[in-house]
Design a binder for these strands. Structure first.
Length: 697
RNA sequence: GCCCUCGUAGCUCAAUGGAUAGAGCGUCUGGCUUCGAACCAGAAGGUUGGGGGUUCGAUCCCCUCCGAGGGUACCA
């Protein structure tokens, strides 16, 4: 870092140049004859560094004589050419630009390309959880960054208001919970999410039981060793002999047991208590674990396996026999949607509204405002038409009853690349792909965009490539003007999030915990703050902290969401930056410095000899415009998150090292102006992240 | 099998192909009668997973191996 305490730019051109020159000279002198490439390089490396320094000296001298007044100093160090500028002059110009433009400081020149950012795609009838949070935070920030970079941007949300999950939730509602909805309207959306999880638990019941048996056959050596005895007991309960033989074969070989290969409905319910006897025994007297060469370590303990068995056992006799009928009911519910059965559509509309009320509240809180609202239910029909046309034109085909596009085959690719994509279910109901084919075309044709971004987690990257390729085969020329902004998903310290299992912390719960903590900290640190302001600031700080945690990680890195970390408002986090902003506000307040006065006094601005911390801060402020351009080009809000943290740090260094209010004039005025510029830049940077900049906290 | 991502300090993460690889948390030592201590100063902590290659120069680009995660025809 050559410029600590100064301001300028460095150039490394002489380093590369020197090597070329030395090599050329050696070659001309014939000294490289017979040398291997490696030896030649080593030979050149002997003199290149000195030559680089000599070249740098020449360049520096040329710059000095060529434009004697342009730079305050020009030097050559280690082969680098460093040029320094007159800081006082540049400082006044920069501060004028920042304070003069205000919230628009950093804004790039207008661009023609219209961009649509599709993000925040929650499903109705499901809970909004921390996994969705990363998507919304990224989408909101990316939209703001692109806008600041000069693009006309349309933010779009895409609500999953129909699909298998909705049907399952509503089946569960009608079948088991009709009329039970909470009296409190605000609680209804969340309640639907719970019904959805219940529906999945019921429908997956048989599979969950069989999965546990598979787990036991792989991880519980005593279970496998004792399987003969267990099955002998089962035999005494008049169990089908074929089923006994099947279970024996599968369990001893650690293979999956397939429900449809069992002959008798009651086999597993009869077997279950015997499995329980074994598991209880195993949990009480666990056999010490002995690692076996080539065998994977068990992922569960006897206690955990027993707990899973118990959860299933409580429902085994009621649920196992009922599952086939439930599946049939779900399928009939699906048909009611397909034929738009009026009572069912009315129920769908009512429950959908419960979820939408939640989403609108959450979006508002996250600063997500949308120019376009897409709904899956509204693109189903157009999707079907596209599928029909794809089939008609021979791009798609029906394979084993399933409408698919064999993309690799159509493109003549030998190695599996885009593979085969189903575009409609065999029963005629629509898939996500059916709808995205239609939606993607709509974005360009109906909304006139030039580029469409999908902010969706990275697990869907093959999916989006498939959509693009199918649209290209379809002849849609703008298909290539789409881009999937993929990001890694959010995990919990204890493992992966599954909305099916409902193990993700709900947004509302996390929000409440964070706000409570924020209120408490404010009450400690700033007891005089009035209640209403405290509530507002707690929201700015709490939500900001949550958002920063989601943004201060590169897109391709997994975020492990740890509530304890989210509740820490110290160190590298949003409150650090917000605090710097609040401090700047307070100093400006005490100094009675207004933006107008600062702009008016720019001509006479005089820092005297600039302190290193002042220069550091000025350089930080000056970097915002290019940071915005880079973040937009790379689609990485992380860059802004890092930038604004670094800027806050520089401001901290500045006000710890330099007295503002107690400084002598004209330094006092100059530092107040610098503080105003820093405050504005901090606020703008936070704004790009969708994070509020409170004036006090 | 094929494809994608990741591997950097005890932990969580940064770092346009450039100068001595930086922050936070945690640990240790200090600093509030001084514009607000959600802060600051200092210490300790590194074979950037291993091995090759390209380059004047590699955490970054290429190859390979190891390890972790994800995707791969009717989930979204």
């Amino acid at each position: 870092m050559p410029f600590a305490g100064t301001w300028g730019v460095a150039s490394s051109v002489c380093l590369g140049l020197a090597n070329d020159v030395v090599m050329a000279e050696l070659a001309a002198a014939g000294e490289l004859e017979g040398l291997s490439k490696k030896e030649a390089k080593r030979r050149a490396a002997e003199t290149a560094p000195a030559r680089a320094q000599a070249l740098a000296d020449q360049v520096a001298a040329a710059v000095r004589t060529g434009s004697p007044d342009a730079f305050s100093r020009v030097e050559a160090v280690n082969g680098y050419v460093n040029v320094y500028v007159e800081a006082n002059v540049v400082a006044a110009r920069l501060i004028g630009e920042v304070v003069g433009h205000g919230a628009a400081y950093g804004q790039g020149a207008p661009r023609a390309e219209r961009v649509m950012v599709e993000h925040s795609q929650p499903n109705t009838h499901k809970a909004f959880h921390v996994g969705h949070l990363r998507n919304s935070c990224l989408g909101v920030s990316l939209g703001r960054i692109l806008r600041a970079a000069g693009y006309p941007v349309q933010d779009a949300t895409y609500i999953g208001d129909i699909g298998r999950h909705v049907i399952r939730c509503l089946w569960c509602y009608e079948r088991f919970h009709l009329g039970e909805e909470p009296a409190e309207p605000a609680a209804r959306g969340r309640w639907l999410g719970e019904l959805y999880v219940e529906a999945e638990t019921r429908l997956a019941f048989r599979q969950d039981a069989l999965d546990l048996l598979l787990l036991l056959s792989k991880e519980d050596v005593d279970f496998v060793a004792g399987i003969d005895r267990l099955l002998k007991y089962l035999w005494r309960k008049n169990t089908d002999g074929l089923d006994i033989a099947y279970l024996l074969g599968r369990i001893t070989h650690g293979q999956e047991i397939k429900e449809e290969l069992l002959h008798e409905e009651e086999t597993i319910p009869k077997f279950w208590p015997l499995v329980g006897d074994h598991l209880r025994e195993a949990a009480l007297n666990p056999t010490p674990y002995v690692p076996v060469e080539g065998e994977p370590e068990p992922t569960t303990t006897p206690g955990e396996r027993l707990a899973r068995w118990e959860a299933l056992a409580a429902r085994m006799d009621d649920w196992w026999p009922a599952v086939p009928a439930w599946r049939e009911e779900v399928s009939q519910t699906f048909q009611r949607w397909e034929r738009k059965d009026p009572p069912f559509v009315a129920l769908w509309e009512e429950t959908r509204a419960w979820s939408m009320a939640d989403f609108e509240r959450i979006f508002a809180e996250l600063g997500a405002s949308f120019d376009v609202w897409f709904f899956e239910s509204e693109v189903e029909e157009e999707g079907r038409r596209i599928v029909a046309e794809l089939l008609e034109r021979g791009i798609a085909e029906v394979s084993d009853g399933l409408p698919v596009v064999k993309i690799d085959e159509k493109l003549g690719l030998e190695t599996p690349t885009y593979r085969t994509m189903p575009i409609l279910r065999s029963d005629g109901t629509t898939l996500y792909s059916t709808k995205d084919l239609a939606l993607t075309r709509q974005k360009f044709e109906r909304y006139g965009v030039d580029r469409a971004l999908w902010v969706v987690d990275v697990r869907q990257s093959l999916y989006f490539q498939q959509i693009v390729k199918i649209l290209e085969l379809f002849g849609f020329s703008q298909a290539a003007q789409t881009h999937h902004v993929g990001y890694e998903f959010v995990k919990l310290p204890e493992g992966i999030i599954s909305s099916r299992k409902g193990n993700a912390p709900a947004y509302d719960d996390v929000r409440e915990a964070v706000l409570a903590r924020a209120r408490q900290v404010i009450a400690e640190k700033n007891p005089e703050m009035p209640d209403d302001e405290r509530e507002r600031v707690a929201r700015d700080v709490g939500i900001g902290s949550l958002k920063y945690a989601m943004l201060a990680r590169d897109n391709n890195k997994v975020v492990v969401f740890d509530l304890d970390e989210a509740l820490s408002f110290e160190g590298h986090a949003a409150p650090y930056i917000q605090y710097a902003h609040a401090r700047a506000c307070r100093i400006l307040e005490h100094g009675e410095a207004t933006d107008e006065a600062i702009v008016a006094g720019l001509a006479g601005l005089d820092f005297g000899e600039l302190r290193p911390e002042e220069l550091g801060l000025l350089q930080g402020i000056a970097a915002l415009p290019e940071e915005i351009q880079r973040a937009a080009a790379e689609e990485r809000p992380l860059l802004i998150a890092n930038y604004v943290y670094d800027l806050a740090k520089r401001f901290n260094d500045f006000y710890h090292a330099c007295q503002v209010l107690h400084a002598e004039e004209p330094t006092r005025t100059a530092r107040l102006a610098l503080t105003a510029a820093a405050r504005q830049t901090l606020a703008n940077g936070l704004g790009l992240l969708g994070i509020a900049a409170p004036r006090a906290m």
